[in-house]
Design a protein around this nucleic acid. Structure first.
Lengths: 233, 233
DNA sequence: AAAACTAATTGATTTAAATTAATTATGAAA
DNA sequence: TTTCATAATTAATTTAAATCAATTAGTTTT
């Protein structure tokens, strides 16, 4: 039985599908996190967090899907992650310049839970397990960004697109076949290439029998070959 | 009066030029950090930390200069930072997979202080100020990596090289004119381009009167123009 | 000082990928 | 259904930057 009222959590203490990190917290600490917490629904396409604005909250999706991306030069975006429920984000600006360093926007209808940064800070200081877990979380993100730096600067297009496909299959849809919630343009923004090049390479993969394409749905037929293309650049 | 014996610190408690982060620690905590701590001298070119090996220590330079870099595909490196004394590094693998995710090697004769990761962890858990400072440190690095991602993927060569020059001038040598401790190849590894292209663009900057070149020494003559090239890509 | 490396420069050529330009699907709204 | 808008595909052209190939300048070593 869900502790929800019209899809809204009542409080963190009794929220039964919150971020795993919250399992480290005591009832007292959950109460702190819950104070001032609020949940907002977003339509597909709406901005959840805008790069450059004041970073007042830690955020987690409660349902739906979102893209986390850097707004670069001349309106060119770089998508870093496709976010699923219970991934904490808002991070890098917290405790530093208090600005969001990336934008996040909904790629399906979605809702998100906003927790006051100051409350997170307070709990972080009182609970070493939570602090360590957050540091772990931050370190994991750093590692992922290192991998991304190498992928984006040293691999050519087939390698970069292979990385995007493997990411979508392994981390987002958890399946060899999936129906995209993003456009070709956005696939390009994941692998730093134009939409035209994205189409080209996808078709190339298809003609080589590595994937099956059918509009918005993709099936990976030769996982081993795709992985090989990924590692060899 | 220096508390040193042949350039080696005796202990963290009386080390008078340690990392600023250590100022947050009590005598008791410094004692923990000091336990098992050791200092090693490196010749120019020697490896201090090797990507992929077991991350057992947090490290800080005590003197000299080092480059922190990712070892990518086909022996191609990407230099992320030029490290000066008292910058803590070793980070991202700690508390996660316990592997170093980058290599660090000396670009002058240098020495480094190695602190056991387990001791850092222990102090981190006992001292919220230190934990918060470490998280801040980690977040700052993340932001820097976001900037780097945009620079390296969206700017063309002049913009990327401008970024490298501004970094060297502002963060490493703290002066408009400096004598490089790195080669053209390494400048290229900072801005993801070949040594030939590095030379070419440097000469181009010189002929435009933006910089003065004299072998290993560089003087930035038109800082505003260089900054403009950096932002416009 | 001569020899042997290593690093830096310069130019010619090739190549990966962007840009430009049309065309074709697909989906939403009237 | 027709219209309109957005997304995807395809091909031709251009461009940024790598590669290849010498040459020149600096350092070490002998």
């Amino acid at each position: 039985m869900l502790n929800r009222k019209s899809d809204q959590c009542i409080s963190c203490e009794i929220c039964n599908d919150r971020s795993p990190l919250f399992n480290l917290l005591s009832q007292e600490e959950l109460k702190i996190m819950n104070a001032g917490r609020f949940e907002v629904s977003f339509n597909n396409g709406e901005t959840i967090v805008k790069q450059g604005t004041s970073a007042t909250h830690m955020i987690t999706l409660t349902h739906g899907m979102a893209k986390l991306f850097l707004e670069g030069i001349d309106k060119r975006n770089l998508i870093l992650d496709i976010i699923l429920p219970w991934t904490l984000f808002g991070g890098p600006g917290l405790f530093t310049d208090m600005r969001y360093h990336y934008s996040v926007s909904a790629i399906t209808d979605a809702s998100a839970c906003f927790i006051a940064a100051e409350n997170v800070r307070q709990v972080l200081r009182s609970n070493p397990d939570f602090a360590e877990a957050m540091l772990k979380h931050c370190n994991k993100n750093s590692s992922a960004n290192f991998d991304r730096l190498i992928s984006l600067t040293q691999k050519q297009m087939p390698g970069r697109l292979a990385d995007a496909l493997l990411y979508l299959s392994g981390k987002v849809f958890h399946s060899k076949s999936f129906t995209l919630t993003i456009t070709r343009l956005e696939m390009g923004e994941m692998s730093n290439m134009t939409k035209e090049s994205t189409t080209r390479i996808l078709k190339e993969f298809e003609s080589e029998g590595i994937i099956r394409l059918d509009g918005k749905s993709i099936e990976i037929l030769k996982m081993d070959v795709l992985k090989d293309i990924s590692v060899r650049g």
